[in-house]
């Protein structure tokens, strides 16, 4: 049983790392701000969830596990909100005639 949990945990951790890596590549390679936000929030939500779940499986039912669950809960609230805030202010800035296209740098 313990071995099974260990394997699942490692799958989660490595999967999370992979998602973060893909998100990072996307952040650099995508052409404009909105697609980049998409890549960043993928790493932020998906990657982080997988990593924390992996850690929770390692920690088991301890105080550390509960703390990790609290962190997960916070992340689930904050990272989509952060992505939303970024996109929203980009749209507002575009409406105001500012150049938000990153390609130019």
């Amino acid at each position: 049983m313990e071995q099974v949990i260990d394997i699942i945990s490692w799958i989660c951790l490595l999967g999370g790392a992979l998602v973060v890596l893909i998100g990072g590549i996307g952040l650099v390679r995508f052409p404009d701000l909105f697609t980049r936000i998409h890549a960043a929030s993928l790493a932020d939500s998906g990657g982080a969830i997988l990593v924390i779940v992996g850690c929770m499986l390692q920690a088991g039912l301890t105080l550390a596990g509960v703390k990790l669950a609290a962190i997960l809960l916070f992340l689930l609230f904050t990272s989509p909100t952060a992505g939303y805030a970024l996109a929203h202010s980009a749209i507002t800035a575009k409406d105001d005639g500012l150049d938000v296209d990153i390609e130019s740098d």
């Binding site: 916070f74 609230f77 805030a85 929203h88």
Partner: peptide, 15 residues
């Protein structure tokens, strides 16, 4: 006036 930010923020403050 930004509902999502407002509600999520208010939710987090007491925590």
């Amino acid at each position: 006036h930004q509902k999502i930010l407002h509600i999520v923020g208010k939710l987090l403050i007491p925590l």
